[in-house]
């Protein structure tokens, strides 16, 4: 029998035991809403620039150590920006440059 615990990907956690459920309910904050809305604006149009499946695939492709250390909408924006670059909607260089500008100006 294959060793499923070693071949399964990071996101594939059904059936594992990750401890008791904490009843957390934190309110979503503005930048998280903006990430969510960016995704929906791209997926809910006729030409579907990014689909829900693509977003999920991009999240599943994140390196396991990153997947486990960043937050929910942080995973979304990593996946979303990677897919936009992959599809040529955004250039990696212009995206990195814009991030640096924002970091410098913040």
């Amino acid at each position: 029998m294959p060793d499923y615990d070693n071949i399964r990907q990071q996101h594939d956690m059904g059936g594992l035991d990750k401890g008791p459920v904490a009843p957390s309910e934190h309110e979503i904050v503005l930048w998280e809403k903006q990430v969510e809305a960016t995704m929906r604006l791209l997926s809910m149009r006729e030409d579907k620039i990014v689909t829900v499946d693509e977003l999920r695939r991009g999240i599943e492709e994140l390196p396991p150590e990153l997947y486990d250390t960043i937050g929910y909408y942080e995973r979304w924006i990593m996946s979303l920006s990677n897919i936009l670059v992959e599809k040529g909607v955004l250039g990696r260089a212009e995206l990195d440059a814009r991030v640096r500008d924002l970091e410098a100006g913040a």
């Binding site: 934190h26 503005l30 791209l42 937050g71 990593m78 991030v99 924002l102």
Partner: peptide, 30 residues
Amino acid sequence: HAAIEADEPQGYYQHLAAATRSLLIEKGVF
């Protein structure tokens, strides 16, 4: 993460989100 607030200092992912959003708006995607 449970304690992130809007007025918290902006980190890498917030900047990445803002950069993505602003470029999409500039390119007329939305």
